[in-house]
Amino acid sequence: MHHTSEYQILVIDIQTRFQPHIQIYPELVNTTGKLLTAAELLSIPALIFEQYPKGLGHTDPALTQFQIECHEKTTFSALNDASAKEAISLDPAVTKIVVGIEAHVCVYQTVRDLLTLQQPVVVVADAIGSRDTQNKTWSIEQLRHDGAVIMSLESLLFDILKDAKHPQFKSVSKLIR
């Protein structure tokens, strides 16, 4: 399918240690799981990043079933870590789809750095979280101002599909019903 190289998904720091601190954590993991399932159906490549797993634990087990390449980092922005940055496509024809934790720190800094490099970015609003919901609201406001597109998972998936005649339409739309 031609979608293969149009998008790349970056899953930022959805790690088990955050669970007790982020109210929407279960929904965030569930939404990210739907995104990654759709990515498999649509041949969209994805990467997982983990912030200092020694201290914060590893990616939520619900997401590790997807067999996605994982990069450990200590920098807040994935682009400030040499090996992490190398894995990210910096082709401006590839839209980066960003989800994860925390919206106002690692997600924010990664997206800001992508935008600085003239990369198109979509942030999935229902798949990012912060311990303080106000911080999430402010980071969405700032990222939109900086040039990121903010979308719900459902908007994004239908935008990728474009047409109800898409061969994966039924499978993908089932995910979001």
Score class of each variant (00 low, 15 high):
His2Gln: 08
His3Ser: 10
His3Leu: 11
Ser5Trp: 09
Tyr7Ala: 07
Tyr7Arg: 11
Gln8Ala: 02
Leu10Arg: 12
Ile12Ala: 05
Ile14Glu: 03
Ile14Ala: 05
Ile14Met: 06
Gln15Asn: 07
Thr16Ser: 05
Phe18Glu: 05
Gln19Ser: 11
Gln19Ile: 10
Pro20Gly: 08
Pro20Ala: 02
Pro20Tyr: 06
Pro20Leu: 03
Ile22Val: 15
Ile22Met: 07
Gln23Asp: 10
Ile24Gln: 11
Ile24Trp: 06
Ile24His: 09
Tyr25Ile: 10
Tyr25Val: 12
Tyr25Ala: 07
Pro26Thr: 15
Glu27Cys: 13
Glu27Tyr: 14
Val29Leu: 04
Val29Phe: 04
Asn30Phe: 13
Asn30Tyr: 10
Thr32Phe: 07
Thr32Met: 04
Leu35Met: 02
Thr37Trp: 06
Ala38Leu: 08
Ala38Pro: 13
Glu40Pro: 15
Leu41Cys: 12
Ser43Trp: 05
Ile48Ser: 00
Ile48Leu: 01
Gln51Met: 05
Tyr52Asn: 10
Pro53Thr: 06
Pro53Tyr: 02
Pro53Ser: 00
Pro53Arg: 03
Lys54Leu: 12
Gly55Asp: 01
Gly57Pro: 12
Thr59Met: 03
Thr59Pro: 14
Pro61Ile: 06
Thr64Val: 15
Thr64Pro: 13
Gln65Gly: 11
Gln65Val: 14
Gln67Met: 05
His71Asp: 07
Thr74Leu: 15
Thr75Leu: 09
Thr75Arg: 12
Ser77Ala: 07
Ser77Met: 05
Ser77Phe: 04
Ala78Gly: 13
Leu79Ala: 00
Leu79Glu: 00
Asn80Cys: 01
Ala82Gln: 08
Ser83Gly: 09
Ile88Trp: 00
Ser89Thr: 09
Ala93Met: 12
Ala93Lys: 13
Val94Ala: 06
Ile97Cys: 04
Ile97Ala: 02
Ile97Pro: 07
Val98His: 04
Val98Phe: 06
Val98Asp: 01
Val99Asp: 00
Gly100Trp: 06
Gly100Glu: 00
Ile101Trp: 07
Ile101Val: 14
Glu102Trp: 04
Ala103Met: 13
Ala103Thr: 12
Val105Met: 11
Cys106Gln: 05
Val107Phe: 08
Val107Gly: 01
Tyr108Asn: 04
Gln109Arg: 09
Asp113Arg: 13
Leu114Tyr: 01
Leu115Gln: 05
Leu117Phe: 09
Gln119Val: 05
Val121Phe: 10
Val121Glu: 04
Val122Leu: 02
Val123Met: 06
Val123Ile: 10
Val124Arg: 02
Val124Trp: 01
Ala125Val: 13
Gln134Val: 10
Asn135His: 13
Thr137Ile: 14
Trp138Glu: 07
Ser139Ile: 14
Glu141Tyr: 14
Glu141Met: 15
Gln142Leu: 15
Gln142Lys: 15
Arg144Lys: 13
Ala148Phe: 09
Val149Ala: 04
Ile150Ser: 03
Ile150Cys: 00
Ser152Gly: 08
Ser152Cys: 07
Leu153Ser: 05
Leu157Asn: 04
Asp159Tyr: 07
Asp159Ile: 14
Leu161Phe: 02
Lys162Ala: 08
Asp163Glu: 05
Asp163Tyr: 06
Asp163Thr: 15
His166Cys: 08
His166Gly: 06
Pro167Arg: 04
Pro167Ser: 02
Gln168Thr: 11
Gln168Val: 15
Lys170Asn: 08
Lys170Gly: 08
Ser171Cys: 01
Val172Ala: 03
Val172Gly: 08
Lys174Asn: 08
Ile176Gly: 01
